[in-house]
């Protein structure tokens, strides 16, 4: 199932579409905007990456809406020296779930979720949150760019 020759192209997959209520400090990369119109149809994701303190993120999970609305999930990950030291390796969700990945890293880095093509800039020891609606089904890995290591995978199953 795995062919080990390259990573996703930066422009492939989903392009983050503007959120309903734009977060105060969005850091999700919006590369590949040329593909935005096509990507917005079948499997569009409302994505936002919110820089927030842990208390804010846990206190205010974004409610999801629409026919596919599912449960709200908040996952905590802790990374030290480029390795996951706390939290699940696999995040399992159902299509339509609202997923918040809250990640604390001991060093500056960038988290990249393939398929959804979401990026989150990480500051040392400051929890950051990547929130999005998991509309696209499949198994998508996420990695740390600076450490160049795969942290785990998001598995979104059909409802």
């Amino acid at each position: 199932m795995t062919a080990a020759f390259f990573a996703f192209r930066p422009t492939e997959g989903l392009t983050p579409v503007a959120t309903v209520a734009p977060p105060p400090n969005p850091v999700a990369s919006e590369r590949g905007s040329d593909a935005a119109s096509a990507a917005g149809t079948a499997a569009s994701a409302t994505a936002s990456a919110v820089e927030s303190s842990p208390s804010v993120a846990s206190a205010a999970p974004l409610p999801s809406s629409g026919p596919l609305a599912g449960t709200v999930q908040t996952i905590d990950l802790v990374v030290a020296r480029g390795r996951l030291v706390q939290g699940p390796r696999v995040i399992t969700a159902r299509a339509g779930d609202h997923v918040s990945i809250r990640i604390t890293s001991d060093a500056e880095d960038e988290l990249h979720l393939h398929g959804y093509n979401l990026k989150l800039h990480l500051q040392p020891n400051e929890p950051q949150t990547l929130s999005f609606d998991a509309r696209r089904t499949g198994r998508f890995t996420y990695e740390l760019h600076r450490h160049d290591v795969e942290l785990g995978a998001l598995e979104v199953y059909p409802r």
Binding site: A4, F5, A7, R83, H114, T137, R139, E155
Partner: peptide, 21 residues
């Protein structure tokens, strides 16, 4: 098991695109 990740470092960029469940 955790340390078995070591060789994967440096290769994360060239690894796998399969998204099949």
């Amino acid at each position: 098991a955790a340390l078995a990740l070591v060789p994967a470092q440096g290769f994360a960029h060239v690894m796998e695109v399969a998204y099949n469940l």
